[in-house]
Amino acid sequence: MLIRLPCLRLSLLVALLSAAVPALAEPFHVGLVIPQSGQFKPLGDHVREAFSVWDNANPGVFDDIVEGEDGCSEQAGADAAAAMIEAGANVVVGFLCTESLAAALPLLSDENIPVITLTVRADIIGEEAARLGWKFFRLAPRAGSEADIASEAILRLWADKPFALIEDGAISGRELVEAIRIKLEERGLKPTFVDNYRPGQATQPSLIRRLKSAGVARVFVGGERSDLAVIAMEAERQGVALKFMGGDLLHAPQGELPLPDGTLAVLAAGATPGPEAEAASRILKDNGLIAEGLRIPAYAAAEILGTIATRMEYSETSLDEALRSTTFSTALGPVTFDENGERREPGFVLAILRDGEFKRLSIEGAARIGGDGQ
Rank of each mutant, 00 (worst) to 15 (best):
residue 15 A to I: 07
residue 17 L to G: 15
residue 17 L to D: 06
residue 18 S to E: 12
residue 24 L to I: 08
residue 25 A to T: 13
residue 25 A to D: 06
residue 25 A to F: 03
residue 31 G to P: 03
residue 32 L to N: 05
residue 36 Q to L: 14
residue 37 S to E: 14
residue 46 H to D: 15
residue 49 E to M: 14
residue 59 P to H: 05
residue 60 G to P: 00
residue 60 G to H: 02
residue 63 D to P: 03
residue 64 D to K: 15
residue 66 V to L: 07
residue 70 D to G: 11
residue 71 G to T: 10
residue 74 E to N: 11
residue 74 E to S: 13
residue 78 A to Y: 03
residue 79 D to Y: 05
residue 83 A to T: 14
residue 83 A to W: 02
residue 102 A to W: 04
residue 102 A to K: 10
residue 104 A to C: 05
residue 105 L to W: 00
residue 106 P to A: 00
residue 107 L to Y: 07
residue 108 L to S: 02
residue 109 S to Q: 01
residue 110 D to Q: 15
residue 112 N to P: 02
residue 131 R to V: 06
residue 134 W to A: 06
residue 139 L to V: 10
residue 139 L to D: 06
residue 139 L to P: 15
residue 146 E to F: 10
residue 146 E to H: 14
residue 151 S to T: 12
residue 159 A to P: 02
residue 179 A to M: 08
residue 181 R to I: 10
residue 182 I to K: 09
residue 183 K to T: 06
residue 187 R to G: 01
residue 189 L to V: 12
residue 190 K to M: 04
residue 190 K to F: 03
residue 195 D to N: 12
residue 196 N to I: 02
residue 198 R to L: 14
residue 202 A to F: 13
residue 208 I to N: 05
residue 210 R to F: 07
residue 225 R to H: 08
residue 227 D to Y: 00
residue 230 V to T: 14
residue 232 A to F: 09
residue 238 Q to I: 10
residue 238 Q to F: 14
residue 243 K to E: 15
residue 248 D to W: 08
residue 249 L to Y: 13
residue 258 P to Q: 11
residue 263 T to R: 06
residue 269 A to K: 11
residue 272 T to H: 05
residue 273 P to G: 06
residue 281 S to D: 03
residue 282 R to V: 03
residue 283 I to F: 10
residue 293 G to M: 01
residue 301 A to R: 04
residue 308 I to Q: 00
residue 314 Y to Q: 13
residue 316 E to H: 11
residue 317 T to L: 14
residue 319 L to K: 04
residue 322 A to G: 09
residue 322 A to Q: 10
residue 326 T to L: 02
residue 330 T to Q: 02
residue 332 L to I: 00
residue 340 N to G: 05
residue 343 R to H: 05
residue 350 L to K: 08
residue 353 L to G: 13
residue 354 R to H: 12
residue 356 G to C: 11
residue 358 F to G: 07
residue 363 I to G: 14
residue 365 G to D: 12
residue 370 G to A: 11
